[in-house]
């Protein structure tokens, strides 16, 4: 459904581009893991897809339409769960959902029904009347997820959705993301945690310094890592080793 071709972006006054000739596809029913260290350009890429940055180079195609045309027709087809807690801290959980539902054009009983569904899906019904800034880190992430789901998006963008989250909420969120893909969504999931991507992704794109350094199906990449890895560690280590070898620097800010 989504096709990114030769996307490039340079912030004003930046010396090096934040994105440089990035190309990959995402399809419905699959989670695409977008992996990369801090500053790799993940958020910049997501911002493009959410229509927040003008396209400088290359193109983004959604179902044979340009991104701009697709967004002009129906902006809510693509939903973003930003890296930050993108909601109003002094509003309650329900008030936040109501606000974003209204902005996206939902109203009346349809809106109430969708809010109820999203509360249930994110398992935050019990906190419906609580002020958003009083929620724990994990609950905030779940609210972020619930808001992203409001409009039945076809493409869901998660930007590091498990930062600052307890292990239970993290497992919950990963499972929820997987469920959304299984229900037919195309999901792009950015992270710098290899094991998360190993757990849920169908395809993986490695991004470093704005460039795609490797991409492929999860299974192939794991196999490749196995073949290349001299001292294969059990379970989660494989993808990480491959990643380290590809990016060639172990520590970044």
């Amino acid at each position: 459904m989504l096709s990114i071709r030769h996307l490039g972006h340079r912030y004003p006054a930046a010396e090096v581009p934040a994105l440089d000739d990035v190309s990959f596809d995402a399809v419905r029913g699959e989670v695409l893991g977008l992996l990369g260290p801090n500053g790799a350009g993940k958020t910049t890429l997501i911002a493009h897809l959410a229509g927040l940055l003008p396209i400088q180079r290359g193109e983004i195609i959604i179902d044979a339409q340009s991104l701009a045309a697709a967004r002009a027709q129906q902006p809510t087809r693509i939903a973003i769960a930003p890296q930050e807690y993108a909601f109003y801290p002094s509003l309650s959980v329900t008030e936040n959902l109501t606000c974003f539902a209204g902005v996206g054009g939902l109203g009346g009983s349809e809106r109430e029904a969708r809010i109820a569904e999203c509360l249930t899906f994110a398992q935050i019904e019990r906190y419906a009347t609580m002020r958003a800034d009083r929620l724990s880190g994990g609950l905030k992430r779940r609210l972020n997820l619930a808001i992203a789901m409001l409009h039945h998006p076809e493409l869901l963008l998660f930007d590091e959705p498990t930062v600052g989250v307890d292990p239970q909420s993290r497992a919950f969120i990963l499972e929820a993301v997987r469920k959304l893909a299984d229900a037919g969504c195309a999901v792009i999931y950015t992270s710098h945690y290899m094991e998360e991507v190993e757990a849920i992704a169908n395809r993986v794109v490695f991004l470093d310094e704005g460039k795609v350094v490797k991409q492929g199906g999860l299974a192939e990449l794991l196999a490749e890592a196995e073949a290349a890895g001299a001292q294969a560690r059990p379970s989660h280590g494989n993808l990480e080793q491959l990643f380290m070898a590809l990016t060639d620097h172990s520590l970044r800010g």
Partner: peptide, 17 residues
């Protein structure tokens, strides 16, 4: 400023505002 810093504004923009 709060709205912009927390990403809510970006979200509104992505919803078509």
């Amino acid at each position: 400023v709060e709205e912009r810093a927390c990403g809510a504004l970006a979200r509104l923009r992505s919803l078509g505002a």
